[in-house]
Nucleic acid binder design. Structure first.
Lengths: 342, 342
DNA sequence: TGATGCAGGGTTAACGTTAATCTTATAATT
DNA sequence: AATTATAAGATTAACGTTAACCCTGCATCA
């Protein structure tokens, strides 16, 4: 039913092989032959059967990407960094989304392996036996983007989660805060673990006792930030600052504070994490940690491509730097906090 | 290098065919045989070569999705609606993103056809010769999600763009607005065209002259809303309400208004379109048109699956209803506008 | 002038899986 | 007991493309 090389061969009088070569710009065919064939193919509506091609060639020109939560704009920005470079290198990108479900992660990994993609970029969960087994045995080049996996080293491109959350917390402490609410992200992902540890470490180093009440576990979505703050306010936890797992949570938090007639940052300061593009447009604009998302994607794909080129290349973790961004949801300095005005 | 059916066959003593059948849960093999084979395969780390399988079978269990702009959370919400149903039906989802570039759209369409996906869901541009040619000749089942394409009928799942934008505009007019700024979306997509027409039609029907100055063309991103308002304010266009192509633009618009010390909605009302999940968390929360995004995705995949099941099934456009959502960025009624307070 | 090289193209044999068709032993039927 | 049906598995032939190798004729060179 569909047009095959054979059909084009019959129509043009060339052999199947020559047709195949012409359509691949392969080797030395006369310019006129190539042109004749290409035009005929176009005219007949030929579309290559990539399954057959792939089976013969053994490897494809596709990069598989497995995202953990594509509803978070964070990821869209990372993919932007991946796309351009991949395209220039002649690779196409296939996107899959796990919703942080390890089973889907394992399933999709197998699927990409089965498809013989050239390489895989993954936003993985932290711990899962099946997944870890796959990562240990797989022969397709892969890298973790912005996260790391328990027991697997050398395959991560990271962005200083611990240090960044430490810095945020220290910055708040410097301004005099002692009761800092921390809204934790989804469990079983390395960012959550690392950022929480950064927060705790800063408390410890400053001799501030850890208060379990001030640590609220969530799924890292916008509504979680909203709900967390409402609950915290109801319980009169008496906090003066909120550090959030990510910008989305911070957005929900600010909304809840505002609805309860707390002024941000005069009454309560709020810090996010990620520096989503929209965060500068929030009201008030959000203070946050700038994660170089585009660069993260770009470096990830560049590194992956190097490994695709040279399978012998040794793997190594990469760590990117972040920077704190002070906007309107946090006070400029200690003074402004004391005065209760910005 | 990788484990093949042949290897498992040799190891277990069964034929290749039997191994293949066991791994596919095909037909009637004795339970013990199936189990032996499956366990051996698992142990040996077998992964099916899907290219070979696909070549033989001729069709895959994958649904291709081509998004126009995956940086817009709108799409993530639509995909949610698609994913669940697709998964239950045993299909996997492959995601591609065009950034509204017709060339990429055509390229990706060919790619999916080449991959023999079972069906395709597309968020297409409105006019492009190459793409339209493909849509006219392709034999893989497909549907346009939330948009329509010039000259192609019966393949769209829509959501009342014209009527909805008409309603928004009429609602603003009812409250006494006469100078309503309209921020237009990206060119060459049907939503932009339809919504603009809805706006214009409402003006016409109410005898309000069209003022070209009040119509600002953008790419539909958040920064466009911001920039548009700043420019409009600089030119003293004297508008009292802003209707936006989408919620993202509205978010930027509100930010710009607020930075210029205009109160929303007391001084200027703002209406979005889409009802993104985050819109309820904006400050002020955004009045908008609720597009049933999850349902859109769900109905799209359900319809597509029906066509995959029965290729003879005739195609037909589907139109979903929307509803206006009044939140804090718009005034409740005419009175409150006049009084300048909510 | 004969050998040589190469441009331009043809032949043939895979790639790994699955579907259609066979085979055989055992169970069910009359 | 002879026949038929069936369960369980084996054989064989594709699927459409690509890569390795082979062929031919003309131009080039000593």
């Amino acid at each position: 039913m569909s047009v095959l090389l054979k059909d084009i061969a019959e129509k043009t009088g060339f052999s199947i092989n020559t047709v195949s070569r012409a359509l691949r710009d392969d080797k030395k065919l006369s310019e006129s032959t190539r042109k004749t064939i290409r035009e005929t193919a176009e005219m007949m509506g030929y579309v290559r059967n990539s399954a057959a091609a792939l089976m013969r060639k053994g490897t494809s020109n596709e990069i598989g990407i497995i995202s953990g939560d594509s509803s978070n704009p964070f990821f869209a920005e990372v993919v932007r960094g991946i796309e351009e470079t991949a395209k220039q290198a002649g690779f196409r990108i296939l996107l899959l989304n796990t919703d942080e479900d390890p089973e889907r992660e394992a399933d999709y990994m197998k699927m990409f392996v089965s498809m013989k993609v050239a390489g895989i970029l993954i936003v993985p969960v932290f711990h899962d036996d099946m997944c870890q087994k796959i990562y240990r045995t797989i022969s397709v080049p892969y890298y973790f983007v912005g996260r790391h996996v328990e027991g697997i080293t050398g395959h991560s491109i990271l962005h200083s989660d611990i240090q960044s959350q430490y810095d945020v917390t220290q910055s708040l402490i410097n301004k005099g805060h002692r009761r800092i609410l921390y809204i934790v992200g989804p469990e079983n992902i390395s960012n959550t673990i690392d950022r929480l540890n950064g927060y705790l470490k800063a408390l410890d180093n400053n001799g501030i006792p850890r208060d379990p009440d001030l640590i609220i576990r969530t799924n890292g979505h916008i509504e979680d930030g909203f709900a967390s703050i409402n609950r915290a306010l109801n319980r009169s936890l008496n906090f003066t600052a909120v550090a959030c797992f990510n910008d989305l949570v911070a957005m929900g938090a600010i909304k809840a504070l505002s609805e309860n007639n707390y002024r941000v940052p005069e009454d309560i300061e709020v810090f996010g994490f990620d520096n989503l593009y929209i965060s500068q447009f929030m009201q008030p604009s959000l203070s946050t940690v700038d994660v170089p998302k585009f660069a993260l994607g770009k470096i990830a794909i560049e590194t992956l491509l190097r490994h695709i080129d040279d399978p012998q290349l040794p793997y190594d973790d990469i760590n990117l730097n972040t920077r704190l961004i002070y906007r309107k949801s946090s006070a400029r300095n200690r003074l402004s906090l004391k005065e209760g005005s910005l």
